[in-house]
């Protein structure tokens, strides 16, 4: 096998089947995995904005006692703040584009770093935001006007039996752990394979 012959044969190949378009707009829509990740993240961001808006509107449809309503809005406000901070961070990631003029190793390392960082921010934001949701749901159920207001006040001031407190704490912890596990599984399932692929390529580059 002579590499010089191979080179000559490669250069003399007929390339008529590959045509350069007259305009960039004629190119097909990009299929890069990273673009798919960005599209997924964008869709999830929009979903979260809609959920937050719905949560703010919910007390308009449910009659709640004033204390419950106040606590409800405080919790939703905190959840929204966490989401907005995360939105800003994710937005900066979406706008960032790796410079493909750099060496392959540099592009690999930068892409992996950006991707891992973004997914960690994503996980943290989803988990911390979601941890408040069981409390929000609890207030929506227990804070309705039709339910005795004093019963609600007794719960939030811990003026209830020790067994009930333990019951609520265990219920909350189980929900929190479930949210943590599901979020991690979801993110790893969606994006983990791509990260593993990049790590394998980087490993082979070093070898």
């Amino acid at each position: 096998m002579n590499f010089e012959d191979i080179k000559q044969q490669m250069n003399s190949q007929n390339m008529d089947d590959q045509v350069i378009p007259n305009h960039i707009s004629e190119l097909k829509k990009t299929q890069l995995p990273i673009q798919k990740i960005r599209r997924n993240i964008k869709t999830e961001l929009l979903t979260q904005i809609v959920i937050i808006l719905l949560l703010f509107m919910t007390p308009g449809f449910i009659e709640m006692n004033p204390v419950a309503r106040g606590i409800y809005f405080i919790l939703i406000f905190i959840t929204s703040l966490i989401t907005i901070i995360y939105l800003l961070k994710i937005n900066s990631f979406i706008k960032q584009t790796s410079n493909l003029s750099f060496a392959v190793k540099d592009v690999l390392v930068t892409t992996l770093y950006q991707l891992k960082l973004t997914l960690e921010v994503y996980k943290t934001a989803v988990i911390s935001g979601s941890l408040l949701l069981p409390a929000v749901g609890f207030i929506l159920i227990k804070g309705r006007n039709s339910i005795d207001e004093s019963a609600f006040l007794n719960i939030i001031t811990f003026n209830i039996s020790f067994e009930k407190i333990i019951f609520y704490i265990i219920g909350y912890l189980v929900t929190a752990i479930a949210i943590y596990i599901v979020t991690n599984w979801w993110v790893d399932n969606l994006y983990g394979k791509y990260i593993n692929d990049l790590e394998n390529i980087l490993e082979k580059l070093e070898y």
Binding site: L32, S101, V107, Y194, L198
Partner: peptide, 18 residues
């Protein structure tokens, strides 16, 4: 040379059979 870099980066880092 610049074209090779961008083309190879696209094939290695970003592109995957869909």
């Amino acid at each position: 040379s610049w074209m090779y870099r961008v083309a190879l980066n696209t094939a290695i880092v970003f592109y995957k059979k869909q």
